[in-house]
């Protein structure tokens, strides 16, 4: 892989989730889009603060819904095909197309496909598994992000990003530190 120029971004370290959410909201409001929050435990408000709730960001929900619909239709279709065309059997005089009996497996497949597509869709949309991620180059990240620190990383790929202005912006929220992250 060729060497990339410049830095990956600027990462600010906070002591409390409240400060992180405030900084992230302000960053989103002032036009930053390429950024991410890193916290030791799931923090819904952080996701909302960086625009995860915007309709364009609801990838997992959409993948899950489509997966569920495909699963349900596939099983219902399979049962219909088997019972009407492939192996039509007269079972206790019931109609060939006995839809009430088809509902149960179709329902199970809906759940199965929705669950699997949510899990794998989430991994794919997060580009996981990722053997390498630049934020680990920040010296204070490795310990803090898994214990008691809250990080906001503004990425250099954002058109609004500039090393000096973005640093001043982050420092206005009084973080513990602002560190440049190498690629």
């Amino acid at each position: 892989m060729p060497m990339r120029e410049g830095i990956y971004g600027l990462i600010a370290e906070f002591d409390t989730p409240t400060e992180l959410v405030q900084a992230a909201k302000a960053a989103y409001a002032s036009g930053y889009r390429r950024m991410d929050c890193y916290t030791p435990y799931p923090l819904e408000e952080a996701a909302e603060a960086i625009g995860f709730d915007e309709p364009t960001e609801k990838g997992v929900a959409r993948v899950c819904l489509i997966g569920g619909l495909i699963g349900g239709c596939a099983m219902f279709g399979l049962e219909t095909w088997v019972s009407i065309w492939a192996y039509p059997l007269n079972i206790a005089g019931r109609p060939m197309f006995s839809w009430p009996a088809f509902i149960v497996p179709a329902y199970e497949w809906t759940i199965l496909f929705a669950g699997l597509s949510a899990a794998f869709g989430m991994l794919a949309l997060n580009r996981l598994p990722a053997p390498y991620h630049p934020v680990f180059n920040a010296p204070n990240f490795r310990d803090g992000a898994t214990t008691d620190k809250f990080f906001l990383c503004l990425e250099a790929a954002d058109p609004k990003f500039s090393v000096s202005e973005s640093r001043a912006f982050l420092e206005s929220f009084r973080p513990v530190s602002v560190v440049e992250v190498d690629h």
């Binding site: 409390t16 989730p17 409240t18 959410v21 435990y41 799931p42 923090l43 819904e44 408000e45 952080a46």
Partner: peptide
């Protein structure tokens, strides 16, 4: 016992 928690801002308790 939940009363102090429910009075907190929403993200602080997470």
């Amino acid at each position: 016992p939940h009363l102090p928690e429910i009075l907190e801002p929403e993200h602080a308790h997470a």
